[in-house]
Design a protein around this nucleic acid. Structure first.
Length: 624
DNA sequence: ACTTTCTCGTGG
DNA sequence: CATCCCACGAGAAAGT
């Protein structure tokens, strides 16, 4: 056994790296002797994609604030059984970012997620509830390193960074190091143990902070349940139609090459080079007026669509002579991006059974909105069915979706208690129609209805005429008029927004959401209070729905959480009923304002909800 | 050669 | 006085 000493916050700690079965017995004896009520837990693995076919669990570490034990689970059944005994018997497990380690232990047969989740305290959740800002946003941060530096010991080493330099000694990179570094390496063993010691010591500090800030216990409980529910969704994953996705990859590649050749005729060798595109366009006589934050000429989609004479749906506008280079760059970039970010990412991320397991970070954003990565399935193109067609249901099953209706606007109404808006929603009126009538009178046009919609979302984000004009492609004067009309239609919103901003300033730039969540504002951006409160509260309503769905046994049908939407699969015969039941559970009332939800049954593929043509339907033989 | 920053595009 | 919010991730360019 290798034993290391390490000073943390002025006290000496011990890290034991178990190497033999006799060492393992010492760990067991230590547990019997100390019988700790609570154990911190961590794992080291071969990589972050838990479900990739070659993923391996290397070590399981546990311990208290003074003693850590590193178990080399990769060394066989004895050590696996040892780890299993420890995690199953511990009354409480303290883990930083528990969803990851719980799924690792579950995937590698150490202990089921369902068994461990109820006794987990996740320090990442506690940290987010204390201060949801990242370190680079002016907060403490959410990952272990900045939290350790702030709460435990400013001199605590960055274990991730330290390991990366250890990798180099073996000629390994950041990609290969996690699987390739030998267990015997001192840095590896030390750092594995150190994270346990730090996590254990972090817990009481965060608990003091939770109490000091009066974060409600029920919110802590709520987030832990949500974490476990989403970890189950990650474990379930979603099935990939590999044959279709390979074909898609080829089509996108050909498409990208074709348009890249078009661009090359105008001297652009690399369509992704903004400077090349900008200088070629300038050389063609185009006047580029917009600049980026650092002063270079902006050649983003909005600029290029304008030059290519296309509207934001890529339809011809007939307002000028289309620039062929702008058109080629738009098409080439889109095809190559869709190829790598979506088609390739899904193919490379799949498991041995052709399923992808996107990771759901339940507290991904500063507002507590969830984020999804690996692959980023929250962000698949939605105006076009081609990417979503890659995701298919198991044979005999069908995709369904339930989404909240205009939830951010409904939340805006509920929080501001804007009387006309609340009343319209209570009466079940179509909110955009109702708003358009208030803004433009009885005979409003389709365009004016769209303006009402844009103004609503713009207002909840606190957007100005410039920003909305850029987003819609309409003149600034039109957007100014639109926002004025919206403000007159709903005077209660501006009143509430002003009050919230003053309230935040008087309270050290922080506000609380109805769930008791603390949101900290940047001093020079207090106007964001409206967006934060709406976004965060909307998120919490869906979070509550997920917990209610869990109580009804319905989360087993769910695959993904996409902000105001949940996506699931169910046997064909029951899908409509299950989707309706999910929708009924998602419906709720917020301060007397109803949040409605709508259920949709998509069919054999996710693309069923996005205009999938018949000829691309999943054949019946698929996967049988 | 490696890391960080910038720019861009996708979603809600 | 007026302000577009929150993410993930690819690829180029700048920095070390």
């Amino acid at each position: 056994m290798r034993t290391y000493r390490h000073h943390i916050a002025g006290t000496e700690t011990t890290i034991h790296a178990v190497e033999t079965q006799e060492d393992g017995q010492e760990a067991v004896q230590w547990l019997k002797r100390h019988n700790p009520r609570s154990l911190a837990l961590d794992t080291e693995t071969s990589g972050l994609n838990i479900y990739s076919p070659d993923h391996q669990l290397r070590t399981v570490q546990f311990g208290t604030g003074n003693t850590a034990w590193v178990i080399p689970v990769e060394r066989g059944p004895y050590f696996q059984a040892l780890a299993r005994g420890v995690v199953l018997k511990a009354p409480e497990l303290v883990i930083h970012n528990a969803a990851y380690d719980l799924l690792v232990l579950d995937r590698h047969g150490i202990a089921p997620l369902e068994e461990l989740a109820p006794k987990v305290v996740d320090t990442k959740i506690l940290a987010h509830l204390c201060d949801s800002r990242q370190d680079y946003e002016g907060g403490v941060g959410i990952s272990l390193k900045p939290l350790a530096a702030h709460y435990v010991d400013p001199t605590a080493p960055d274990t991730q960074a330290g390991l990366k330099s250890a990798f180099r000694v073996y000629g390994l990179t950041e990609q290969t190091g996690w699987s390739g570094i030998p267990y015997e390496d001192e840095t590896y063993q030390r750092y594995a143990g150190l994270d346990v010691l730090i996590t254990f010591r972090l817990l009481p500090k965060l608990n003091v902070e939770i109490h000091r800030l009066a974060i409600p216990d029920r919110l802590v409980e709520f987030e832990h349940r949500l974490m476990a529910i989403c970890a189950r969704m990650q474990r379930t994953g979603m099935r990939l139609d590999v044959e279709y996705t390979r074909g898609l990859l080829d089509r996108l590649e050909r498409d990208a090459e074709h348009h890249a050749r078009r661009a090359a005729r105008y001297g652009v060798q690399n369509v992704n080079s903004t400077s090349q595109v900008a200088s070629a366009l300038t050389g063609m006589g185009e006047m580029l007026t917009e600049v980026t934050a650092s002063g270079s000429l902006r050649v983003d989609k909005a600029v290029l669509l304008d030059l290519a004479d296309l509207d934001d749906q890529w339809n011809p506008r007939a307002s000028r002579r289309p620039n062929p280079l702008a058109d080629a760059v738009l098409h080439a970039k889109r095809a190559s991006r869709w190829r790598t970010s979506y088609a390739l990412a899904m193919l490379e991320g799949r498991d041995a059974n052709d399923r992808v397991h996107p990771s759901i970070n339940t507290l991904g954003a500063r507002t507590a909105r969830a984020s999804v990565s690996g692959p980023p399935l929250q962000q698949l193109p939605s105006r076009d069915w081609t990417i979503r067609r890659a995701i298919v249901a198991e044979p005999g099953r069908t995709y369904f979706s339930v989404d909240q209706s205009s939830v951010e606007l409904v939340v805006l109404a509920a929080l501001s208690q804007e009387s006309r808006m609340c009343e319209a929603i209570r009466q079940g009126r179509n909110l955009h129609d109702f708003t358009a009538k208030l803004m433009f009178g009885e005979g409003f046009t389709k365009e004016q209805r769209n303006l009402a919609k844009v103004a609503g979302l713009g207002t909840s984000y606190q957007g100005g005429p410039q920003a909305l004009a850029r987003q819609t492609g309409l003149p600034v004067s039109v957007m100014r008029d639109t926002l004025n009309r919206y403000a007159r239609a709903y005077p209660g919103i501006k009143r509430w927004a002003g009050a919230m901003q003053r309230h935040a300033l008087a309270n050290g730039c922080e506000v609380r959401t109805p769930s008791g969540r603390r949101l900290v504002l940047d001093r020079d951006k207090t106007f964001r209070v409206v967006a934060y409160l709406c976004q965060s509260t909307a998120r919490d309503t869906m979070g509550q729905a997920l917990i209610d769905l869990e109580a009804k046994g319905l989360t087993d049908y769910l695959n993904l959480w996409i902000h105001d939407e949940v996506l699931g699969t169910a046997p064909e015969a029951e899908a409509a009923d299950i989707a309706a039941e999910v929708a009924e559970t998602v419906r709720m009332s917020l301060f007397g304002v109803p949040i409605d939800a709508e259920a949709d049954v998509y069919g054999r593929t996710w693309a069923g909800g996005y205009g999938l043509p018949d000829e691309w339907q999943v054949p019946d033989a698929q996967g049988v």
